[in-house]
């Protein structure tokens, strides 16, 4: 191969060229195989074992049986449903609204975009810390402002209230990216189509619902998938905002607690697998919506 440079027959160099994409992909593929695919397979293996004195002992499906009899796990799934459901719906609706507003292309847009993106650059742990301070029971700025509404028990101390704060902080953090995603889609909608509908006498709202929304539906679905996955696997905001109180113990927080605070790796791995299947199933359902006309 190395001496093929002056070869008149082009075949060896063509064969060499066919291998080029493999060489280009090889570093990435190696990393993904070792640090993504192998750990996933290993997770499945661990879920069928129990850890005793640092050794894995085969227990078959015992971890899954324990998990499906565990009332706390189903409680945490219910919390996840509330948490993910509210954050996804609110983020998508608000994101759409902000995108529509930005699409009017006010001359202040560059400034708005920078300010809007401040929550995006903030870590979930920092966001949790800052929001915790706003709602702190005695000295929190917002808690004091809403004191007449909450009475003696602060919002933070109420189970529903704690969940509400976690939801608000999560929406706050995920709104910028979702808005930008939708704005990109709105800017690609042909102006002629929209104006044509307006000429036919359709109102602005009707045009938006009937023409624009269906066109940007694929991007809407991407937004829903990203928000759902983000919510299902959220740990940092919840852990810092409310600690590990039962009121906000979603399935992801429960996994964190079981795996690392109690060192029950077998159960932790079993929860991982169940969560993974839920993630996958939801993504597939959403993608069906994307494809169907």
């Amino acid at each position: 191969m190395t001496t093929a440079t002056v070869h008149t027959n082009p075949r060896p160099s063509i064969n060499f060229r066919r291998l080029v994409p493999l060489w280009l992909l090889l570093p990435s593929l190696l990393v993904l195989i070792l640090v993504q695919f192998y750990p996933t397979a290993y997770t499945i293996y661990i879920s069928l074992n129990r850890l005793r004195a640092g050794e894995l002992i085969w227990v078959g499906t015992a971890n899954f049986e324990r998990l499906f009899k565990d009332a706390n796990f189903f409680d945490s799934l219910e919390k996840s449903l509330t948490f993910v459901g509210s954050t996804v719906i609110a983020t998508i609706l608000l994101g759409l609204l902000v995108a529509v507003l930005l699409n009017y292309r006010s001359r202040w847009n560059p400034l708005y975009m920078v300010l809007l993106f401040v929550p995006w650059v903030i870590s979930d742990v920092v966001a949790g810390t800052v929001w915790r301070w706003l709602f702190q029971q005695d000295y929190g700025l917002i808690q004091n402002a809403i004191q007449p509404l909450t009475g003696d028990t602060s919002l933070y101390a109420r189970p529903d209230g704690a969940m509400l704060i976690v939801i608000l902080a999560t929406i706050w953090r995920s709104l910028p990216f979702t808005s930008l995603l939708f704005l990109g889609a709105l800017q690609n909608v042909s102006q002629e189509v929209v104006e044509g509908a307006a000429l036919d006498g359709a109102g602005r709202l009707t045009t938006f619902l009937r023409i624009t929304l269906p066109i940007i539906r694929p991007t809407l679905i991407v937004g829903v998938i990203l928000a759902t996955i983000g919510g299902l696997n959220s740990v940092g905001v919840i852990l810092t905002l409310t600690g590990n109180i039962p009121a906000t113990e979603t399935a992801s927080v429960y996994l964190y607690e079981q795996g690392w605070r109690f060192g029950d790796f077998g159960l932790g791995a079993a929860i991982s697998i169940v969560m993974f299947v839920i993630n996958l199933a939801l993504t597939l359902v959403y993608l069906r919506f994307q494809g169907e006309e």
Partner: peptide, 8 residues
Amino acid sequence: PTLTNLVA
């Protein structure tokens, strides 16, 4: 999600 593989 990263969470899936963390135990392993």
